[in-house]
Amino acid sequence: MRNDLVQESWDRIDAWLREHAPRTFATLRPPAEHEEIAAAEEELGVIFPPDLVASLLRHNGALDGAEAFRFSTHDRLLGTSEIVEDTRWMRDIAEDLDDLDEEEAATYWIDGYLKFGSYEVTADGLTIDCRRGRDSYGAIGRFFDETGTDFGRADSLGGYLKELADQLESGQAGGAVTFNGRLFWEWVMPPGPDWGSDDDPLPGPAEQLPELDLSCSPADVLPVGSLDSLEELGALLALLPREQVAEAARKQLRRVAVETGLNKYPEVKSALDALERGEAPPHPEQAGPLALRLRSVIVQADTHRDSPRRWAAEKMVHGIWGSPYRSVCESASIRGRLIVQWRADLHADLGNPPLPPIPDDHFWGTLRNPAIDSSRHAAQYGQGQG
């Protein structure tokens, strides 16, 4: 019966991915061989739960890389050989923790656990209990490097895959977002209560306020790392003409202002209106009306524990007086906490041109854009070519 649930769940997952995220679907590997699974069991000295066997016989993990199929925990599905490798690594880690007593060791990692999903950046990942004869046999948990293994995710892998299929079919409500043929898991901060008014008076000169970083300039050079995190959208930004990026920066800045409540203030709205008309902003100064408004908002946002509005007030400076490349990256960072479809919005603001591949070291090493500092990649690429 459980094997049927595994197959039914993968049927639903595969069908959804084929339709909505074909690039992610393409990373799922073909079935494992029975002999490979048996060899893994013998090497690790455990019997895989039937659900895990059934899943491996459907997909022997997912290919590595940015496009890889990942669970909602952002863990990549591991194949049979990777399960062996990661599980052996976890056993080695556990053996080095001599200061743990028996009870602590059991909640951290024991030989009866397997890792079948890997976060990859850290040792974290999805686990399954392979201790036969226990009620927990086949149960799903997750390992956290700092706290150990926490079970209770699902009673079986079949049940866990069913929950995943439900999430996908719920779309954005379940955290499943698609862009450019790929699956992303996105959750945003719940909106807090609104506060502030368009007729709030500006603070007086004697009021103690945090100062803004007004050292930015439109000529500032952006490090590659800021764009690299945007993947194919970052590559697109690096390739488009500066004016096209500046237009997108203005649109993104307006979105941030509206979504965080900054647009209600006349000083902010007036500055954004002027930018959209192509007017040069006034020289930045801490005592100017716009700066006073932003400084005041930062203080009030701290009082209301409104992090997005504080971030928006701090970064508005860079959007108005700084590099459009930096502004786009910062707007994307803020909107990623607020809007699940921020990628599609950014692509639209850039004019919906064809997207390049996800950039690699060769892309950044051969990039020649004076607004972007790719010197380290260029040096490494040059050494590789030499």
Rank of each mutant, 00 (worst) to 15 (best):
N3I: 14
V6N: 06
Q7F: 08
W10R: 04
A15Y: 00
L17F: 07
E19S: 10
A32V: 02
L44I: 04
V46F: 06
A54E: 10
L56T: 00
R70T: 15
L77I: 03
G79N: 00
I83C: 02
V84T: 12
D92Q: 13
A94K: 08
A94L: 01
E95S: 11
L97N: 10
L100I: 07
E103P: 03
E104G: 14
T107D: 11
W109R: 00
Y119E: 09
T122N: 13
L126G: 05
I128H: 04
C130K: 05
R131D: 07
I140K: 02
I140Q: 02
D150V: 12
F151I: 02
L157D: 05
G158S: 10
G158N: 02
G175S: 11
W185M: 06
V188T: 15
G192I: 11
W195H: 03
Q208I: 05
C216W: 11
S217T: 15
A219I: 03
P223G: 10
P223L: 08
L227A: 10
L239C: 08
L240Q: 07
Q244E: 15
A249K: 09
L253H: 11
L262T: 03
Y265G: 05
P266W: 06
S270H: 09
G278M: 03
H283A: 12
Q286E: 12
P289F: 00
P289G: 03
V299P: 08
D302S: 14
S307Q: 12
A313V: 07
E314A: 12
V317L: 06
G319R: 05
G319A: 00
I334S: 01
R335S: 14
R337E: 14
I339Y: 09
H347E: 06
P353S: 05
I358R: 09
P359G: 13
P359E: 00
H362L: 10
L367N: 03
L367F: 01
L367R: 07
Y381A: 13
